Computed example of a mutant assay.
Amino acid sequence: MRNIRHHAFIVTCNDRKVIDAIRVKALELYKLHMEASNGSQLVSEIKESIVNHYCSFFIIPDGSKEGYDASDDSDVIREKLIEFIQPLVSSEEYHLSYAEFSYGADNGQTTFRHS
């Protein structure tokens, strides 16, 4: 039996135009690379913090078992999104960061990757 491992992703930035562009890219990636036609529903709206004008959006877990199409598609999408974000994270012009974390695996292992 295959394992369900939940993968979640969050992006935070203090520049609304930048985070808008990243969210649009995330939606585009889900439309291009996910077999499930409703995959873009995993991408949340952008929410603004209550101070300092930081904005964030989330990509919620797909709910698929590892090795199945939805899980594999989501793995590819997260990697492509990180490739898109990384040059912006490296720039001192923006206060941009992301975190990817997985949890809920049968072995109890939690992983975390961030900028």
Rank of each mutant, 00 (worst) to 15 (best):
E83I: 09
D15E: 15
H7W: 14
G39C: 13
K80S: 08
K25A: 13
I59H: 08
Y68F: 06
D73Y: 07
S49D: 08
D73H: 07
V11H: 10
I60S: 08
Q109I: 13
I50L: 10
R2H: 14
S97Y: 03
G67Y: 07
E28M: 06
D69R: 04
S40Y: 14
C13W: 10
K80Q: 12
A21D: 15
V11W: 11
R5S: 07
G67N: 08
H95R: 06
R23N: 11
F57L: 07
V43Y: 01
S115F: 01
F9W: 08
I4Y: 10
I59M: 05
G63T: 05
D15Y: 13
L42A: 08
H7K: 15
E28I: 03
E79R: 10
R113H: 06
K47H: 07
F112P: 01
S97P: 01
I59D: 09
S74D: 11
P61Q: 08
P87R: 01
V43H: 00
D62L: 01
L27Y: 11
N14F: 04
E100Y: 03
R23Y: 11
V76T: 10
G108D: 07
N38Q: 08
Y54T: 09
Y68V: 06
Y54D: 09
S71M: 00
Q109K: 12
K31S: 15
S74C: 11
G67T: 04
D62C: 02
I60D: 06
L29W: 12
A105C: 01
I60P: 00
N14C: 04
V89F: 12
K31E: 15
S115G: 05
K47C: 04
Y30R: 08
S74Y: 01
N3S: 14
E79Y: 11
K47D: 07
S90G: 09
R2E: 11
N107T: 01
H114I: 03
H114K: 04
I22K: 03
R16M: 06
T110Y: 00
T12F: 06
I85G: 04
T110W: 00
S102L: 03
G39W: 12
I82Y: 09
K47R: 04
A36E: 13
V43G: 01
D106K: 04
H53K: 02
T12S: 12
K25F: 11
C13R: 05
I82M: 06
L96H: 04
V76M: 07
I22E: 14
N52M: 13
N3H: 12
V18F: 00
E35A: 13
K31L: 13
S91D: 09
I19S: 13
V43L: 00
V11L: 13
D15K: 10
P61C: 09
Y30P: 05
E83G: 05
Q86R: 08
S37P: 15
M34T: 14
E79P: 03
V18R: 03
H7C: 12
H95K: 04
L27V: 15
I22S: 10
C55Q: 11
T110V: 02
L81V: 07
I60W: 03
L81P: 06
S97V: 00
P61M: 03
L88A: 02
I50Q: 10
E79T: 11
A21P: 13
Y98R: 00
E83L: 09
Q41I: 01
S91P: 04
K31H: 14
F84D: 05
K25M: 14
A70Y: 14
A36S: 12
